[in-house]
Amino acid sequence: MAGNGNQNPDVVIEVEDLVTHYGERKILDGVTMDVRDGEIMVIMGGSGSGKSTLLRYLMALETKTSGTMRILGHDLDEISSMEFVELRKKLGVAFQGGALFSSLSVGDNVMLPLYEHTDLEMSTMEIMARMKLQVVELGGFEDLMPAELSGGMIKRVAFARAVVMDPKILFCDEPSAGLDPAVASALDELILTLREAMGMSIVVVTHELESAFKIADRITVLDRGKILMIGTVEEVRASKVERIYNLLNRVPEDDTMDPDEYLARLTGEDYKVGNQPL
């Protein structure tokens, strides 16, 4: 029963005083935030602010240094491996590049979670995959390979795969990055449609202001690993905090860096992300 007592049923993710390091370097410093049931939480910040790192921790892909994290009521420090497998089935993710499996067709990509986690008949899984593809307006694309799709289509397929198990929480990493404004806007609409249709909580990391203001119920603003502010779109827009003002108004900052620190980041002696076994 460890870690199953959700203290607030309206909250799907609770993070308290999260501190993370890569080697000696502190990446996230005392992050405390929550994500409520059914809301779209946007995490914003400049380059190197730690927003993508925070997303990896929210998705339970990394091991924290200290602090507590509860996802859907499960304390990650106390969860058993069986519970963790079950918890994973309630999370969906659409990565920045789509992360579609290039050796599988579009339909097989979308079906994969069903195939691995359910005992459904193949024909049922095919129908479910087709339905999710229709939700992202790619009905009829089941037999194409990922290499035959455009960047926007790949992201849509990634969304279809992410929601095929009807997750409780959907994570999106830079959904509109690298897309033209029309396609990016369509993806924003898709995020809103998915929330409307499926009632899930959605956590979106983005640095696109227009997109963030369009879809967010609340916004978390990160800067250098710390939370500057959590608030509604109006509250963030009205903020008088200098760094938030600069971020929103695209004011360049004199962000000088110690050359030794810069080189340490580049050479990455202590940089552990991406250097781990499977």
Binding site: R56, M59, L61, V85, E86, L87, R88, K89, L91, G92, V93, F95, A99, L112, P113, E116, H117, M165, F171
Partner: peptide
């Protein structure tokens, strides 16, 4: 990473 998040 996608596999891990999908619980695979």
């Amino acid at each position: 990473d996608a596999l891990k998040v999908m619980g695979i």
